[in-house]
Design a protein around this nucleic acid. Structure first.
Lengths: 124, 124
DNA sequence: ATCGCCCCTTACAAGAAGGTAAGTACCGCA
DNA sequence: TGCGGTACTTACCTTCTTGTAAGGGGCGAT
């Protein structure tokens, strides 16, 4: 069920983009890879609290297939693999910027709402 | 299944935003509701090819709980319900803009790649 | 020699998301 | 009287995603 494009016919661009970032850890992987330019497998694992090795590998492979991350394997011992964002991954991250800002705003707003709803401690 | 914040502790804003738009039809619902300012249930259903009534109701309820859409019920016969974007939904859609552009670009690029890879009748 | 690190892979199991189909209650139309 | 339209709800089932656990091959450290 997966050819080059993973999912069906996209109705709009948002669809296509969401398809590529949907996955429990992909947003965080993107974030990690953007802050630190390049990360090794174990570094990413430590950076994502609670991720299993399987999921990390799987997501990284999908993102590689989607052309978002670059995977550089060094034929050394012990094995070393470095992940970094491709040009595409980078532009995606930039496109994700406003969304991240919106999300942050939303979190902030929810925090305020919670204080409003439970007003005994102090006024907001 | 859903308190005010639906999912766990968000690491970054992208997380929170993705949580809110992840769902097979939410992107499209947002799009529909943004183009036409206000839509009724059956109109939305006709606008999203292949959506089931259950999923549409479910997604709309979640988005209402998330403060993205406004649901106006008219106590008439036959029943009439109108959905529209809230202020939040609107800003979300704007934040989704760059992502949509990225997705569109990606679709275009894939189409080009496919032509590159499969030049009509030659070797497979 | 055994342990643990590195970067995975595989098999299996659980859970969430989504789809199908039917039912509800009311009405206008033929 | 029966059909279709409106806006759902419910029960059941399938598929997709995620998690758990184990293994594997090479090497440095204990």
């Amino acid at each position: 069920m997966a050819k080059a494009p993973r999912c069906g016919p996209y109705i709009c661009g948002v669809d296509a983009a969401l398809d590529v970032v949907s996955g429990k850890w992909k947003g965080l992987i993107l974030w990690e890879l953007d802050t630190h330019r390049v990360r090794r497998f174990a570094e990413l694992r430590r950076g994502l609290p609670g991720v299993s090795e399987k999921m990390l590998t799987q997501h990284l492979r999908e993102m590689e297939a989607d052309g978002l991350v670059h995977r550089e394997v060094y034929a050394e011992v012990p094995p070393r693999v470095e992940y970094s964002l491709t040009e595409h991954g980078h532009t995606l991250n930039q496109a994700l910027g406003p969304l991240g800002a919106w999300g942050t705003e939303r979190i902030r707003r929810e925090a305020i709402d919670m204080v409003d709803v439970a007003p005994q401690t102090s006024h907001r």
